[in-house]
Design a protein around this nucleic acid. Structure first.
Length: 927
RNA sequence: GCCCAGGUGGCGGAAUUGGUAGACGCGCUGGACUUAAAAUCCAGUAGCCAAUUGCGGCUGUACCGGUUCGACUCCGGUCCCGGGCACCA
């Protein structure tokens, strides 16, 4: 009986579909397990072989949990709003909904062929109105809440209004855009309009005028993590700074909880570290520096209050409001000119010219509150308006930027930290600053002689005692800009009256995307929604023209999967309390600081408001590595249409040319296919070696332009989905990046056929026999159970595949045909090669799907050994092996080893100094 | 510059707690079967040295050093590759 994967795979895919094998429902009689893949953006290019890597891993885990009695939620859907479909729409006029629909259909076909155990009845699409209804709904909740720092959670805006009515802002500790001081009477006496403006200062979704990343080519604003090195991540267009009124989410309110929550979840250290860096907590002090001859004080933030005696000048951000107030009239022209110049510089230029030192003196002095010396106040663009207070005390001896600045402008430098055991030196002779986190204080008054940590602690106390500052924590994490001037996104359920935003009624959700005549901004530069006729409320008020960004739809999709058809809520309480949170989340690192911060924020907010029962959404997270491409090259002799094989290319002057990896097999080029591949090469000639044209190769990014894209459909057509699944896993550890090389696939395909032959050893007739299995056979099976179990639990799927190979090799050698061995083996391999497992399971007489079988129980007694083959080492070097009874005592082992003739041979008369015996492991003789 | 992860045969990789380095697979070499090929099977395959056979020897996990009876694994330093962040005070 041949292994005919085409027939087998299509039969079982059809079976699973018609029997709804993988559909799940809330079932309190079973423990739940939620396995989630990061959902894909359905791009026009379809899936390549790198995409399913994580999906296969999560599918294996889902099967494993299912076979172990868990009720497994394993859904899939599409992150379907996004720029590519819209850019395509602008170019072609094709509605993005149509493009998206087509792309999704293609994705689905490809995914289906791999035979995943998804519950497709739960599919979601972010662009579906029934889905974005709840995206809009969460936005409304954010708008209707503020963050109370005292209770440390989000509370309803009504509670804030109530508070303001009673006490004004007195004792109010709220996350806000800017501090306000109001009495209850002032609040109550305000017109409603003004009150609405005040409330925007506190809402978790708020409208504010901010400096944004404006991308002219895309005609939209981008979030910080959508911009890389001054260019848009999607499309690579230049991005500039612009001041605009935008919706923002007050993510910063959750900074501390987003940070501390990391300690409660099982993510990799590197990923947690990335999030910690992004949140960027720094503990320090705010300090006041009085300005000489003026009424003002300058507030600065520093993490190194201990170096205060080395603060020899101050620097303000060019955008600081203090700049015009402090600038001395004699310096006004110069200062204004400098500010004008920095404003013109885009962020891109500032990044490109990191080393360029610029700045200007204001003509004004401040007083260092500890040294009492007058110090110059400068303006420079290396100080950022948005971080800390927009002003710093410069300690040039111990901060590299301050140091370069001081050298450049000839400002004083005073050393205040000594490296232990060294003498002070003249800082102006230094190559660079000494950014010391440890050392001994000098030139620092009451701090002299203290270590840096001691000095930091003492200064903090001193600052508070003297009333010249206070201890302060800062975060780098900014509020997320939530408006995009685009068409293909969720509309905001917001209208404007007297220029102020108001929410629509919840019963009017979803607010559907309107039809427009074109997907471009209007002539006036308004977003595309301005083209929609009647984009007004029933009352005639204009509706918000922006749409929401990509991360809006992906921030709570894991909740929607729990209860995808719910018309009344994002997720019902019942479904949420059953499924709770994601037990295993698999996806790429590219979402480390975007999606994974925003979803945690949304989830924490929904937790505060009582809509979900878990504070953190993703318990365990695995990052799959990238699959890189393996490109092939042909070597064209310069100026000819002649190609020379790899081994001979050094005899000629050649240019390497990428050739399509799909017409190369084991690095041998298919000459006929090459001639047909591109008209340019139809007349190509070849210089062969051993009758073959051998190509060169290199590992590169998998991309169309390198002609190294491998499509899973092609692999499945040739080898079947089970082979693809096994091979993707066999390639290497899931978390590691590795190149795809189709060459190795024969090995796993042969393995499957060999497994098949265990069942059909003698041709057409099923070879499986009842009868009692031999101890050697049981040992092979149970060794395999143990290893596979361990491997799956630690996500080491590559070694699982090796284990199956070893198992099948051993069983073949034993000529094993016992159902007692072969049937449990099918259950073990079902997660990896489900079609094959189902087929053989049914052929061995089972009428129901293997998916409801039980995971074989490990019996450790089969693994017990009577004897141990000890490696005998001399001075740590293994010399020979000695088989000894497993229960032999250490003393007996020593005796036996010393009596062995090989031992005397290696000792060559020397006396052993020591014999190390580690029972069941090793013997080491030291001489 | 800072943070994180990694560096093992021709290639992908294995070695789970410090205990036989190179499992498993690809490729390659030789052989069996075959008219032939495919498929399948068998043997060999880290490098160097030795060798009629047999028994072997030395080196080796990026590099240098350390801890240990014993180090791919732990510690210190250096180099290289990948990812993230970057005037963040």
């Amino acid at each position: 009986m041949e292994y005919s994967f085409r027939e087998i795979e299509s039969r079982w895919q059809a079976y699973w579909k018609s029997n709804k094998t993988f559909e799940v429902r809330v079932d309190p009689s079973k423990p739940k397990f939620y396995v989630l893949d990061m959902f894909p953006y359905p791009s026009g290019a379809g899936l390549h072989v790198g995409h399913p890597l994580g999906y296969i891993a999560s599918d294996i885990y889902s099967w494993y949990k299912r076979l172990n009695g868990f009720n497994v939620l394993h859904p899939m859907g599409y992150d379907a709003f996004g720029l590519p479909a819209e850019q395509y729409a602008i170019q072609t006029g094709q509605h993005p909904a149509i493009t998206t629909e087509n792309n999704i259909r293609r994705y689905r076909e490809q995914l289906d062929k791999i035979g995943f155990s998804y519950d497709w009845s739960r599919e979601v699409r972010t662009c579906d109105p029934d889905y974005y209804h709840w995206t809009q709904w969460v936005f409304m909740q954010l708008f209707n809440h503020w963050y109370n720092k005292i209770t440390d959670k989000a509370e309803s805006i009504e509670s804030l209004i109530h508070y303001l009515e009673k006490r004004g802002t007195e004792g109010l500790e709220a996350a806000c855009s800017g501090p306000l001081i109001l009495s209850a009477a002032e609040w109550s006496g305000m017109p409603a309009n003004r009150q609405q403006e005040i409330l925007l200062n506190y809402r978790l979704a708020y409208l504010a005028e901010t400096l944004v990343n404006w991308c002219p080519a895309l005609g939209t604003v981008l979030a910080n993590d959508e911009v890389k090195e001054g260019f848009s991540v999607r499309g690579g267009h230049p991005v500039e700074q612009r001041k605009m009124k935008q919706w923002l989410l007050r993510v910063s309110a959750y900074a501390e909880r987003l940070l501390s929550g990391l300690d409660t979840i099982n993510w990799t250290d590197s990923l947690k570290e990335m999030q910690r860096n992004w949140i960027g907590k720094s503990e320090g002090a705010n300090m006041f520096f009085p300005v000489t001859d003026k009424e003002y004080t300058i507030e600065i933030f520093t993490t190194r209050a201990d170096t205060i005696y080395g603060a020899t000048f101050m620097v303000l951000a060019p955008e600081s409001e203090l700049v015009p107030l402090l600038t001395h009239p004699a310096h006004r022209d110069e200062v204004e000119k400098y500010i004008e110049e920095t404003r013109k510089r885009t962020e891109r230029e500032r990044i490109a010219e990191v080393k360029k030192i610029t700045g200007v003196f204001t003509g004004t002095y401040a007083v260092n509150p500890f040294t009492r010396e007058n110090i110059q106040i400068w303006i420079a663009d290396y100080v950022l308006a948005g971080y800390g207070t927009g002003a710093i005390m410069a300690v040039p001896a111990h901060d590299s930027r301050d140091f370069r600045f001081a050298l450049h402008f000839n400002l004083p430098i005073v050393q205040v930290v000594l490296q232990p055991g060294q003498e002070p030196t003249d800082p102006t002779t230094w190559q660079d600053s000494f950014d010391a986190k440890e050392g001994i204080m000098v030139n620092s008054g009451f701090l002299n002689g203290l270590s840096v940590p001691e000095a930091i602690a003492k200064t903090k106390i001193e600052i508070e005692n003297r009333g010249i500052g206070k201890v302060q924590v800062n975060y780098r994490l900014r509020d997320a800009i939530f408006s995009r001037q685009r068409y293909w996104g969720e509309p905001f359920p917001v209208f404007y009256r007297d220029g102020l935003p108001y929410l629509m009624d919840e019963k009017d959700l979803p607010l559907r995307l309107p039809d427009v005549d074109a997907f471009l901004p209007t002539e006036k530069g308004e977003p595309p929604l301005a083209r929609a006729a009647h984009w007004k409320t029933a009352g005639g008020d204009p509706i918000e023209l922006s749409t929401m960004p990509g991360f809006a739809g992906s921030s709570a999709y894991y909740l929607r999967y729990m209860d995808p058809g719910n018309k009344k809520a994002l997720v019902s309480r019942e479904a949420n309390e059953y499924w709770q949170d994601v037990d295993l989340y698999i996806g790429g690192t590219e979402h480390a600081v975007g999606h994974l911060i925003y979803s945690r924020f949304w989830n924490k907010f929904l937790f505060d408001t009582g809509y979900v029962c878990k504070d953190e959404p993703f318990k365990k997270l695995i990052n799959q590595g990238m699959i890189q491409g393996r490109s092939n090259f042909a070597y064209r002799i310069k100026g000819t249409n002649k190609f020379v094989s790899l081994g001979l290319k050094d005899q000629y002057d050649t240019t390497p040319i990428h050739v399509d990896v799909n017409i190369v097999s084991h690095d041998v080029l298919d000459l006929e296919a090459f001639r047909n591949w591109n008209p340019e090469y139809s007349q190509a000639e070849f210089i062969l070696e051993n009758g073959k044209y051998v190509c060169g190769w290199a590992v590169e990014k998998m991309s169309k332009s390198m002609y190294n894209v491998v499509n899973p459909d092609v692999i499945i057509d040739k080898y079947g989905a089970d082979t693809l699944r096994l091979y993707e896993m066999f390639l290497g550890p899931i978390e590691q990046s590795k190149p795809w090389d189709t060459n190795g696939i024969d090995g796993v395909h042969k393995f499957i056929k060999k497994l098949w032959r265990l069942f059909y050893a003698n041709g057409e007739q099923l070879a499986v026999t009842p009868g009692k299995a031999a101890p050697a056979e049981l040992k092979v099976l149970h060794r395999t159970i143990k290893k596979i179990q361990d491997d799956i639990e630690r996500f080491s799927f590559n070694t699982s595949v090796s284990t199956f190979m070893i198992c099948v090799n051993d069983l073949t050698d034993l000529k094993c045909s016992k159902s007692e061995i072969l049937e449990p083996l099918l259950v073990l391999i079902a997660p990896f090669a489900p079609h094959l497992a189902e087929e053989l399971w049914s052929r061995t007489g089972h009428s129901q799907s293997i998916s409801i079988a039980s995971w074989p129980v490990l019996n450790p007694t089969f693994l017990l050994k009577d004897t141990i083959e000890y490696p005998v080492s001399f001075n740590g070097k293994m010399r020979y092996k000695l088989e000894l009874p497993a229960d032999m005592s250490i003393a007996e082992i020593e005796k036996t080893v010393m009596e062995n003739e090989q031992t005397s041979r290696y000792l060559q008369g020397a006396m052993p100094k020591k014999i190390v015996v580690v029972p069941k492991r090793i013997i080491n003789i030291v001489y």
